[in-house]
């Protein structure tokens, strides 16, 4: 099982701060993961519609679209960061 965490407007659009899901074996990369998640609900779809505005962290490190997701304990999805 993988812990999914959502932040800022991604959290608002999905309507939840996170969920625990089993990633199916055919979902190998971050890009495939976003496609799979977007199909879960209209909220997920709305949150992930603009892929250019989505950032992903796998086990608390930034991950590109081609990064593998197998074995990840924690995957976070959020907009570009705006701290400082």
């Amino acid at each position: 099982m993988t812990e999914f965490l959502y932040f800022a407007w991604v959290r608002e659009r999905i309507g939840s701060g996170g969920e625990t899901l089993a990633i199916p074996p055919e979902v190998a990369t971050v890009a495939q993961l976003l496609d799979w998640l977007a199909a879960r609900s209209p909220g997920h779809e709305a949150a992930l519609a603009d892929r250019g505005a989505i950032r992903v962290a796998v086990d608390q490190d930034f991950a590109g679209l081609e990064a593998p997701v197998a074995g990840a304990a924690e995957i976070a999805i959020f907009p570009p960061v705006t701290g400082g």
């Binding site: 407007w9 907009p79 570009p80 705006t82 701290g83 400082g84």
Partner: peptide
């Protein structure tokens, strides 16, 4: 400062204006 602004996972939400966009 330059690196924490683009790497540390913080998000600003302004009262009345919503989420601040990245620059």
């Amino acid at each position: 400062m330059d690196w924490l602004k683009t790497r540390a996972p913080f998000w600003k939400h302004e009262a009345g204006a919503g989420w601040v966009g990245a620059k």
